[in-house]
Design a protein around this nucleic acid. Structure first.
Lengths: 103, 103
DNA sequence: TTTAGTAGTCATAATTTTCTGACTTATTGC
DNA sequence: GCAATAAGTCAGAAAATTATGACTACTAAA
């Protein structure tokens, strides 16, 4: 009998999902800026030097899919879109602060 | 004058370094196993299915370089090496737990 | 001094992620 | 209708990460 109880199943590392998600390129910056104010696509592109449309687009979509950001269509003057931090997103703020402290 | 005070400098996102470090392939598993017991190279290779020498080797080295793991040569029966969580490493345990809770 | 065990390294290949630049969709104001 | 603005999408190229398999270094015991 092959008792492999010591073998690690990839699914059993619960922090992994969020870690991978938050560490994708430009994601930490996106998150940090979202803490300060709602995000707009074109602003992000300008604010995060070196970033590009495609990657930002995918990043925002992924952060939205896991419910860290919420996408809102603003039907005002220049019609545009804003991304807000969700409650779940806000709960990550302390995690970021801890990481900063640990250095 | 080009006042670019809104432009994000990549260095100004302090959580980024640790995030990237912890999210590299197999790193969360390595960390989680290190919380439970000192690590040995050959055991890790067996325990983490799908992993490979090269990547584990680099991962351990990186975790050691930022002082999350400490490498100790054990001059006992079968001479071998053990990797221990440092104090800094231990301080990450609560971060992982928070990430797990947030899901 | 030969063999076995542990812990790797190295060059190369495969895979995944990110970037670039052209193109698309939707709405508003003229 | 037509141009302008905002927010993207898409295919292919480039870059970074990860995997493979052969090889090395060290020690201890026989």
């Amino acid at each position: 009998m092959t008792t492999k109880k010591e073998i690690v199943d990839n699914e059993t590392c619960p922090a992994q999902g969020l870690l991978k998600l938050l560490s994708g390129k430009w994601k930490p910056e996106i998150f940090r800026l979202a803490v300060e104010a709602p995000l707009r696509f074109s602003s992000l592109l300008r604010q995060i030097e070196g970033s590009n449309k495609q990657t930002l687009s995918v990043a925002l979509k992924e952060l939205e899919e896991v419910n860290l950001l919420e996408k809102v269509v603003i039907k005002k003057k220049p019609l545009h879109i804003e991304y807000y931090l969700t409650q779940k997103g806000k709960s990550l703020i302390t995690v970021f602060k801890q990481l900063e402290n640990i250095g």
